[in-house]
Amino acid sequence: MENFTPFLSLAGGLVLGISATLLFAGGRIAGISGIIGGLVPPSDPEKKWRLLFLLGLIGGAALYPIIGGDISYISLNPYGFADQLHFAALIVGGLLVGIGTQVGGGCTSGHGVCGIGRLSVRSIAATLTFMAVAGIVVFIIRTVVGG
């Protein structure tokens, strides 16, 4: 827990919650898979806000180190995979996430941030499932794989 920052985490959570609330007040859900999925149809009238949301998401992450945020602890290859295996794992992982968002009717941000706020039983069940699987994966990686 060497990088534990409770106040920054609280501030980030508040900004995220306020943003999701404002978007929801406009009749939209701040689920990333739905926002990106809505960019695919070329005639989508809501394409502009979706692009701006996505640019803000990427731009905020890009801006963080520029304004002094520490990213030295981030590793692009945390388990030491060979480059080819690492690249394959990223592709397989991305495909599994895409399939999971289709099967689960949304992603962690849509269910966890927005769905729980609306007291959606489906979103609560989905978020509990995400968290349980994440815990199992961490356990397997740390004990079985040895990461």
Rank of each mutant, 00 (worst) to 15 (best):
K48Q: 04
F81N: 02
P42L: 14
I67C: 00
V138Y: 11
A132T: 10
S75L: 00
A30S: 14
R28G: 01
P45F: 11
G27T: 11
Y79I: 07
G31W: 03
A11E: 13
Y73I: 02
P42M: 04
I36H: 07
V103P: 02
G98E: 05
T21E: 11
N77F: 04
S75T: 03
S123I: 11
G37H: 10
Y79M: 07
T129A: 13
T143W: 03
G100W: 01
T101S: 12
F87E: 06
L39C: 10
L63M: 10
T127P: 07
L10R: 12
V113K: 04
V121T: 04
G94A: 13
V15W: 12
A126T: 12
L128I: 14
G26E: 07
D70R: 03
L51K: 03
A88L: 15
G13N: 08
Y79A: 13
G37D: 11
I140F: 14
I32R: 03
V145M: 15
F4T: 12
G13W: 09
S43L: 10
G93I: 02
I140H: 04
I116A: 02
I91M: 12
L95R: 00
D83K: 01
G34F: 04
G106I: 07
L57E: 00
G104H: 08
G117M: 09
N77R: 05
F7L: 13
L14P: 00
G38M: 08
F24G: 14
P78H: 05
F87D: 11
L96F: 09
Q102N: 12
A126W: 05
P78G: 02
A134I: 15
G105E: 08
G69R: 11
H86T: 00
W49P: 05
L16R: 01
I71E: 00
A134C: 13
C114P: 00
Y64H: 05
R50F: 05
L39S: 05
V138T: 13
T101W: 06
W49Q: 01
L90G: 14
F7R: 10
G69N: 06
V92T: 09
A125K: 14
L22W: 08
T127G: 04
L22I: 13
Q102V: 15
